[in-house]
């Protein structure tokens, strides 16, 4: 089994991993970080989005061995202690979540989507989140949240 080492939510981790292990399974099963969710098996739903070296990635489309040497951030690593990231706070303020299952992936996608674009338009947000499925909110409040989050992040 190959060995990998990476920075996960700011912490150095290393260990052996089977070559066929998907990144999402590595995060959930090996690292016991269960905030990253699995909502489909065809890389469509986006519930498993994490950041790899700052870019949003569906962690079901990557193998764990591919993140050797990378910096990976999951939803658990976004807030600073009990202080929410501005995007998380925007989702709370704007009721951008209901059941919470798609939320981690949605928030991680949104953070990457709005980076450097504080005045992102509704159309850009809707197109940018096309790879994240939410069944509860009808996206209305997610769009509002992302817009507010973008402003709060200041680009």
């Amino acid at each position: 089994m190959p060995s990998i080492s990476l920075t996960l939510n700011g912490r150095s981790v290393s260990g052996e991993v089977e070559t066929k292990t998907l990144l999402v399974d590595y995060i959930r099963e090996n690292q016991k970080l269960t905030g990253t969710h699995v909502g489909c098996d065809t890389s469509q739903c986006g519930s498993c989005v994490v950041h790899v070296d700052g870019k949003s990635v569906k962690s079901c489309t990557m193998l764990a061995v591919q993140v050797d040497g990378s910096e990976v951030t999951t939803i658990e690593g976004l807030a600073t202690g009990e202080e929410l990231h501005p995007m998380q706070e925007a989702f709370r303020q704007n009721h951008g979540l209901q059941c919470g299952f798609c939320t981690p992936g949605m928030v991680m996608s949104a953070v990457d989507l709005v980076a450097g674009n504080p005045d992102i338009s509704e159309t850009e947000i809707r197109e940018g989140l096309e790879g994240n499925i939410c069944r509860c909110t009808g996206y209305h409040n997610i769009v509002k949240s992302v817009q507010a989050g973008a402003k709060a992040m200041g680009g």
Binding site: E76, Q88, F91
Partner: peptide, 14 residues
């Protein structure tokens, strides 16, 4: 605002 959101937003739902 919802009481449940903090845990969902931080990946701490169960």
């Amino acid at each position: 605002q919802r009481k449940e959101d903090f845990r969902f937003l931080t990946g701490r739902g169960t």
